[in-house]
Amino acid sequence: MDPRGVDLGTALGPLELKNPVIAASGTFGYGREYSSIVPPGSLGGIVVKGISLEPKAGNPPPRIVETPSGMLNAIGLANIGVEAFIEEKLPWLRSLDTKVFVNIYGHRLEEYRAVASAFKGLEGVDALEVNISCPNVDKGGMAFGTDPGMAARVTEAVLSSTDKPVIVKLTPNVTDITEIAKAVEAAGAHGLSLINTIAGMAVDVETRMPRLANVWGGLSGPAIRPVAVYMVYRVVRSVKIPVIGIGGILEARDALEFLISGARAVQVGTANFVNPKATLEIIQGLRDYCARKGIAKLSQIIGTLET
């Protein structure tokens, strides 16, 4: 079988993707940074860096530190704000032949509403991905995504302010991720993406200082992949809406772990830093795998885990 003949198409509810490989938020800038190496049109989608209502400068340095097979980051959600994003970044994104997901976040329900409504009717934005891992300033800084009720309210707030499909990105820093997933589904989300980074910390024993100025950060990279695959496996069995798998995918075999476990698409994050061509190599690797297995459509392997 010719790998070129394999149909990699996948659907996320109303969204039809040409292939299941999406560049993850915060690892692909606003899409342009890697465009000389990765033609955006070759990807299933791009999730642009998290956007908030006001511009945000981010955390003081050091913001990143490498750990065994992973990295901790505390960038602090630095971004140019929704107004500048729409004016400066969206026109170029609009020209791309790929699905554009805009990742949004806030620290209050009204902020989520305001950011979401800024994209109402705007061409070039195919869906919103909602980061619910942020602290809720009205609830003592507890992350929205750690409580089913609060996660549902954010989802409703965004849904009532937009005409776009809404994907909610789940944090793994919870006791039972399926409880959050079910609450978000019941609130009307079109899909889920998981996992966001795992909270972590590293200490410089010479200076006895945390290695991140923010003290703690989010762990990503291949170190977290088994945790992510397990959470996707569990969430897929608890909800009916499509799930996007994220966590330490470096190559096609890693993406396949998520797809076989039931994810309809995957996001590639930290791998972009390690190998800017990672997304392209994963797409080719998926074709080769399907061809080798005699599978004409990639969708035929989604959720085929043998247990």
Partner: peptide, 10 residues
């Protein structure tokens, strides 16, 4: 990343 995408080297 080295190209301005990760914003880690602030």
């Amino acid at each position: 990343c080295g190209v301005g995408a990760c914003q880690g080297c602030a």
